Amino acid sequence: MTNTDFSAPRDITPNRMGTAGFALSIGYTILFILYAIVAEAIANAGIHMTDSVFSYLSMVLILNVWLLGLIFSIGGLRSQPKGKAIAGLIISLLPIILFLFTAIIVSPQISTPIRFENELKERKTQAIERIKDVRTAQRAFRAEYQRYAEDFDELERFLHANPTELRCDIEQLRYIPNSDNEFIMETGFTKTSSNRTGPFIEVRAPYKLFLDTIKYRREIIDLIDDEVNNFNRYPGIKFGSMEEANNEVGNWEG
């Protein structure tokens, strides 16, 4: 018969490293929350502290406490009991998990509209510069013939015979920048406000012809919908009018 002495003390060695890691991870969390509260209060007071000594020292302290908590928690996994070491490791890894989640999921949703706005501004500016050249060329043609060139072939022949100051090469005049698409050009004659017949012209470049419709499909659909339904404007760049002679006014000028 085995005689078991239940009164004998158990050999339990505390996992000091795991406990330290857990404590540091809790400490870093508390410090971060306190920093956020103080920063919010200072910002509400109208004080900018982004580059302040307080902000710098606070972040250095928080990062060091976080790093020590991570190191001690990992080290504590080598000893028993591992409960606090595991808890400290989980708490320490949360910022990394949140950062990766933000970088992979949230960041593209925020950065895509910003990139689209930048591209829209750049390509719109380039399209306006080119369409201004088309207008300059057509004005020169009208001064010579009292009408507008019917197409770009006729306009190019005129420019070769009558040099006109343009920003681009004559052969590039018909093309919308950043694309292989040509400007849509319509010319003819219409009645003016004084009931006289006069030449008219409309040259346009829809957004979908010079923006990246593959990369920014959703953004372009929303942009066109907004221009047409909310602002009652042409969704793109254009000058002139198909309905009346308007001195080749550009929609970017009004």
Rank of each mutant, 00 (worst) to 15 (best):
A161I: 06
N229I: 01
R130Y: 08
K124M: 13
E150Q: 13
N178D: 09
R135C: 01
T164Y: 07
N118E: 15
A127F: 03
I237P: 05
K215N: 10
R204K: 14
P113C: 02
T190P: 05
Q138Y: 04
P163S: 09
I224T: 10
R139E: 11
R218Q: 15
E150F: 05
N230D: 11
D151C: 02
T192C: 00
K191N: 10
Y175L: 08
Q172P: 04
A140P: 00
P199C: 08
N195G: 08
H160M: 11
N232G: 10
D225A: 11
E186Y: 10
R218F: 13
D133Y: 04
N181M: 08
I114N: 05
A205Y: 02
N118K: 15
D225T: 12
I128F: 02
R218G: 14
F189N: 14
K121W: 03
N181H: 12
P199H: 01
D225E: 12
D212M: 04
P235Q: 07
E165A: 14
Q126I: 03
E227K: 10
E122R: 14
N162C: 05
R157N: 15
A161N: 14
C168A: 15
Y234L: 04
Y207K: 00
D151A: 04
T164L: 07
L120W: 00
E171V: 10
I114S: 07
E150V: 09
K121E: 12
E227F: 12
F200T: 10
K215G: 08
F200A: 06
E171R: 15
F152C: 00
A137E: 04
P163R: 07
R135I: 05
L223D: 02
Q126L: 11
